[in-house]
Simulated assay, not measured.
Amino acid sequence: MLRTIEESQITITQLMLPSHSNFSGKIHGGFILGLMDQIAFACASKHSRNYCVTASVNKVDFLNPIEVGELVTLKASVNYTGKTSMVIGVRIESENIQTGEKKHCNSSYFTMVAKDENGKNVPVPGIILDTKNKVRRFARSIARQEQAKNRTTAFRTSEFKMELYLDSLKDQNAKIELTEN
């Protein structure tokens, strides 16, 4: 079964309140992460028509602070479908309701897995890629998966070769004082 990406896209907008702020008066990153996880869940569940769980989150960069009183819009879309998993792209923009100025605050990628009523992984519908941009997002998700596999292999305890990294540590804010191997 295949579905269009548009069938499961979700957009939510929420006013940022003082209760969402941190000690510096900006909106707390943890609150934004919670909203991101909720919209990724909603998008994945809508696409798969199953309960979904978050398997991983790829790269969360807070690009611009969000102020109390701004509107925050979160947009979620299925970028990739595997057998039982989906990559959901989440984009966040804030808007100053007095000036109309909009800021891109974050983009992130959530890998969500579809589950049945017994908690077992279930197949998800594929997606129809009908634009160059959709093909680009799908291909980019595959590339991110490959990069993640390579990262985890190189830094496994059994595979790690410290000598390969000593030069890169020289100009860092750290001092190596090994007491054991």
Rank of each mutant, 00 (worst) to 15 (best):
M1V: 12
L2E: 15
R3S: 05
R3L: 07
Q9I: 00
I12R: 10
L15H: 06
L15C: 00
M16H: 10
M16Y: 03
P18D: 12
N22D: 13
S24T: 13
S24D: 12
S24Y: 15
I27T: 00
H28L: 09
G29H: 08
F31R: 15
I32S: 01
I32A: 05
I32T: 05
L33W: 08
M36Y: 08
D37T: 15
D37F: 13
Q38L: 13
I39S: 05
F41N: 12
F41L: 14
C43G: 06
A44F: 07
A44C: 07
S45N: 03
S48R: 02
R49T: 07
C52D: 03
C52Y: 07
V53S: 15
V53C: 14
T54K: 04
N58L: 11
N58R: 13
K59F: 12
K59D: 14
D61H: 10
L63I: 15
N64R: 13
E67M: 12
E67K: 11
V68F: 02
V68G: 11
E70A: 06
E70Q: 12
L71R: 11
V72F: 04
T73Y: 07
L74N: 03
L74F: 11
S77K: 01
V78I: 05
V78Y: 00
T84R: 01
T84Q: 06
G89M: 04
V90A: 00
R91V: 13
E93W: 03
E95K: 06
I97C: 00
I97L: 14
I97W: 03
I97F: 07
G100N: 10
K103V: 02
K103T: 07
H104P: 03
C105N: 10
C105L: 09
N106G: 06
N106E: 11
Y109R: 01
Y109G: 06
Y109H: 11
M112L: 08
M112T: 13
V113H: 02
V113A: 05
A114Y: 02
K115F: 12
N118P: 01
G119R: 09
K120V: 09
N121W: 04
P123D: 06
P125Q: 08
G126A: 02
G126Y: 08
I128P: 02
T131F: 03
K132C: 03
K132I: 09
R137N: 10
A139C: 04
A139G: 01
A139H: 01
R140E: 13
R140C: 05
R144Q: 14
R144K: 12
Q145H: 12
E146K: 09
E146I: 05
E146R: 06
Q147Y: 13
A148Q: 13
A148M: 11
K149L: 13
N150D: 14
R151W: 10
T152C: 09
A154I: 14
A154S: 10
A154R: 15
F155M: 08
F155T: 08
F155Y: 15
R156F: 13
R156D: 15
T157D: 09
T157I: 10
T157E: 08
S158D: 15
E159D: 15
F160N: 03
K161I: 14
K161Q: 15
M162I: 08
E163N: 07
E163A: 13
L164C: 07
L164P: 03
Y165C: 11
D167F: 05
L169T: 10
K170W: 07
N173G: 00
A174S: 03
A174E: 04
N181D: 13
